[in-house]
Write a protein that binds this DNA or RNA. Structure first.
Lengths: 343, 343
DNA sequence: CTGTTAGCGCTTTCAT
DNA sequence: ATGAAAGCGCTAACAG
């Protein structure tokens, strides 16, 4: 159904129909009424958005958010949700829509992204070899990556995860002798399990990689052999999984007295496990997390404060061209709470 | 920057450039390389999405979600998030994007919606007089409303809130003598406060209206004077607000022994308040909620089970034209738990 | 393997 | 107040 079909049926010119929809004041009321009536009867869907954009050259007025994770997962992660909320705030301000582009890891992603009706992209952290990253670059539209990887042609919005992890590990591990890491997935396979001596450079997910590197830095500074530190890799960022994995490792008798966790979620899971195992925090085990979320406050958890909301907003402003990229990284700071007081 | 500019600069025809981007196998490798190089140098952003859609007539391949609430609010509500996750699942399956259209309540909304680069709409529950509802209707694109209002030209996806509320109130209030309602906002103003004898028909938000009507039905069936039931209206759907409002009302000495709440969130807040006030549940006060969420299980809360995830998925399938509207409403059932056992 | 032609549905510009 | 013409950037169909 097109303007011209409506025009034919109403016995007027195409322009009259166009005016009726875009500039009603310019047509006579009687004509307008007739056109509206005919359009209604024919079920005219209104001017085609693509054609209108083509003619007006006004852009699509929507921002694309490329998600390697399934959307369910994003919404299950409260901090990811904060990030999206930050983007959404700026989109609202700019009168833009926010288009989620859920990729599946298949070749279809390229088509999804190439043909996405959006003016710019924000890419949620992914691996350097992700095909959707290439698709975004090939689209030559403005693009911002959150978390990593740093890539040519993209602005990066992220804290310095390596330094933050090092500071956290120094706080949690010093004074102890049996450190452990509770870790995000290493790559798209999301294989879980406990490993030793992982080379951070071999890790695909940039956030996991950088934080592991920071832990390694801290181990070196503290004179701890990196090979001896258990790295408990979780498939998902949930308190449940943190709890279960810590329970099995420590329940099996592994000596651990300081857990650096890559999120507050996982850290809270660890603290739940420690509670069940009768290992008081911080007396027997110190714990630290990331994000300074609400549960971190409730559990008196030492954590790396950062604002995913602000980062989302900044990513959006850069993608929308409202803010210049700038080279400075986002802010973080270590929040010391009871969970890391070595008594 | 357009295909033809690239073509001119590369010394080939427009079609060759088009093929390079859409069907690379069809051009000689040497030509392809040259075109790609020139496109790169010129900063060509790839084929224009609008023009391509216009020519291919393939649709925009994105679903629009119209949100009357601020996006922040949607993400703060775990059940709303489930609904979005359900939509997202179907979008992923169909290779569609999901475009959030955050309306602001101003006239700009009409433009945002009319020009949205989406093929169909899902509207999150809103008031009948919402201008964005009219804008969606005027767009003549397929549209589904969640929760309400029922409106001509829209498919409604919702449980029967009135019957569900009545069943819940019958369970929570019978055997007691001082019922109360913990209520969602009544209208866009989101004014909070305790009221008596609200006429459900005067309430703008359809979900609040229908659930209040169900409560009124139950009051009548139980022989309780509707005018005497305090209706505690909350501005937001959060445990904090439920806790605070119940604390002030009951702390001031109001006699209440059965609270029907419009969400598990609010209900859990109420139970927290009752705990602080030393009013044991269910001995002194019975409580019921909506949604059968995770906290409801933890708090042994009687609740109306429904699946927002399934409703989101169904709304999306209908909007995408994969599923026929059908007239049946979505399923709900009353889950009886300890919080309503009148002892 | 590459080019030509035609036209998608719309709106801008310039008549009438 | 209404209409005719032109063309936005792209690609399907068909040459060559």
């Amino acid at each position: 159904m097109t303007l011209s079909e409506v025009a034919a049926a109403a016995g007027v010119s195409v322009m009259t129909v166009s005016y009726t929809f875009n500039n009603p004041g310019r047509v006579a009321e009687s004509t307008r009424l007739k056109v509206v009536e005919v359009a209604e009867r024919l079920g005219f869907r209104g001017p085609d958005a693509g054609a209108r954009q083509l003619r007006r050259r006004g852009g699509l007025r929507s921002l694309g958010l490329v998600l390697g994770e399934s959307l369910d997962y994003i919404f299950d992660d409260p901090e990811a949700t904060r990030f999206v909320a930050g983007i959404a705030r700026e989109c609202t301000r700019a009168g833009f829509g926010l288009t989620f582009l859920p990729t599946t890891g298949t070749a279809d992603d390229v088509e999804l992204i190439a043909s996405a009706a959006v003016d710019a992209f924000i890419v949620w952290t992914t691996t350097p070899d992700d095909v959707s990253l290439a698709a975004v670059r090939d689209s030559h539209r403005p693009a911002v990556i959150h978390g990593g990887p740093a890539a040519e042609g993209f602005t990066l919005v992220s804290i310095d995860n390596r330094s933050a992890a090092e500071a956290l590990a120094m706080e949690v591990w010093s004074g102890g002798s049996h450190p452990a890491v509770l870790c995000f997935p290493l790559d798209r396979s999301r294989d879980a399990g406990t490993h030793y001596g992982i080379d951070p450079q071999s890790v695909a997910f940039p956030v996991s990689r950088d934080r592991l590197a920071g832990c390694q830095d801290a181990a070196q500074a503290l004179g701890i052999d990196w090979q001896r530190i258990p790295i408990i890799v979780c498939a998902h960022n949930s308190a449940e999984e943190g709890r279960d994995r810590v329970t099995s490792l420590l329940g099996a008798g592994a000596p651990v007295d300081g857990i650096v966790s890559m999120s507050d979620q996982l850290a809270v899971g660890a603290m739940e496990a420690l509670k069940s195992l009768d290992l008081p925090v911080p007396q027997d085990v110190t714990v630290g997390g990331f994000d300074d979320s609400v549960p971190a406050r409730e559990w008196e958890l030492t954590t790396v404060h950062q604002s995913l909301l602000d980062q989302g907003a900044r990513a959006a402003r850069i993608a929308l061209g409202v803010e210049k990229p700038g080279s400075k990284q986002d802010e973080w700071r270590l929040i010391r709470r009871r969970s890391s007081f070595r008594l």
